[in-house]
């Protein structure tokens, strides 16, 4: 079967989420093509052509695709689907935005955020914030699938796919981009970081997140937060890890002052190693933590940072 994977990129470089989605798609069938839709995406397309297992790279280079808004993405993808049995995209906000549109236009029930692929038509996906895993079999002629990328290994490089430009999306569109306010950070991106350190309501204030900043610097970690900390206004929403935020699966996840609500665990329990610092020894986070430290975080964090320093970090 022929599968179209939609690339995650920022018009400059290809993102790791693409490689992971290719791995998921390859479990459905062997003919995997990559679509790079954006503006000025020549470099991205060149990178995409190197992803192992990709047959062909399609590029659509157009001004309305610069931010990959929903209507223009729909206009690019739907006509292409005559030649494909499935379309697969990462479940980041960009793709969550238009994939349901594509599914509805194809009269297909979308299969969202899959964590397992058991063949061309059968998928495993978390429901109820990851408290249950549903295995579903699709009877639709074409499949529309989004992928929880943390559940799949990244496809390597070494491919040499051909690159082919396709026609412009047909407008007009009833939505337009106005502006963007992106959180500026020198730290790694939350979903791609090897180490993530997150603070919860126990941090007490946004100011106190400085206590984990030094540790994040030493470990090259991304900083995250629980929904409680976001709701309390301590940190921006895009730091949120959990059912209603981002799903992360780093090698090390450090939860600080986070009780471990179901909704938070849903976003981080696939981490390889979990460490937790919390003063409440009965906090549910300790039931999933490989290493738990029962301590007042205001004392433990400076000590942790000092110990890292001693250990040469």
């Amino acid at each position: 079967m022929a599968i179209l994977v939609i690339a995650e990129h920022d018009n400059k470089s290809l993102k790791d989420a693409t490689h992971k989605t290719v791995t998921a798609a390859a479990k459905m069938g062997k003919d995997v093509d990559l679509l790079v839709a954006g503006k000025g995406v020549k470099d991205v397309a060149a990178e995409a052509a190197k992803v192992a297992g990709v047959r062909k790279v399609l590029t659509c280079d157009h001004a309305t695709l610069e931010r990959q808004l929903a209507e223009s993405m729909q206009a690019v993808i739907v006509p292409l689907m005559d030649g494909y049995d499935a379309v697969v995209a990462p479940d980041t906000t960009t793709h969550k935005n238009y994939m349901p549109r594509v599914a509805a236009k194809l009269d297909v029930q979308q299969i969202s955020s899959v964590t397992g692929v058991e063949g061309a038509d059968t998928f495993v996906r978390p429901i109820y914030a990851g408290n249950a895993m549903a295995t579903v079999k699709s009877s639709d002629a074409k499949k529309v699938v989004t992928v929880r990328t943390t559940a799949f290994a990244a496809a390597g490089d070494g491919g040499s796919a051909s690159v082919e430009a396709i026609g412009d999306p047909a407008g007009p569109f009833k939505s337009e981009y106005v502006s963007e306010e992106l959180t500026k950070s020198d730290r790694p991106e939350l979903t791609a970081a090897k180490v993530v350190i997150s603070g919860g309501r126990g941090m007490g204030s946004g100011e106190n997140f400085k206590l984990i900043e030094g540790i994040a610097d030493k470990l090259g970690a991304a900083m995250g937060a629980s929904r409680a900390a976001v709701d309390a206004g301590y940190v921006p929403n895009d730091w949120q890890v959990g059912q209603t935020g981002k799903a992360v699966a780093p090698a090390l996840y450090i939860a600080v002052g986070i009780s471990g609500a179901i909704q938070h665990l849903a976003g981080m329990k696939d981490s390889k190693v979990i460490a937790a610092i919390n003063k409440d020894e009965d906090a549910p986070i300790f039931q999933v933590a490989d290493y738990g430290l029962v301590a007042d975080l205001f004392k433990a964090l400076p000590e942790f940072e000092a110990e890292l320093e001693k250990a040469g970090y």
Partner: peptide, 18 residues
């Protein structure tokens, strides 16, 4: 369009050490 084959508990993580 989708048939639920089964619904299972997620793989549980075990608590580690303190």
């Amino acid at each position: 369009r989708l048939k639920t084959v089964k619904v299972t508990e997620p793989e549980a993580r075990k608590a580690g050490i303190k």
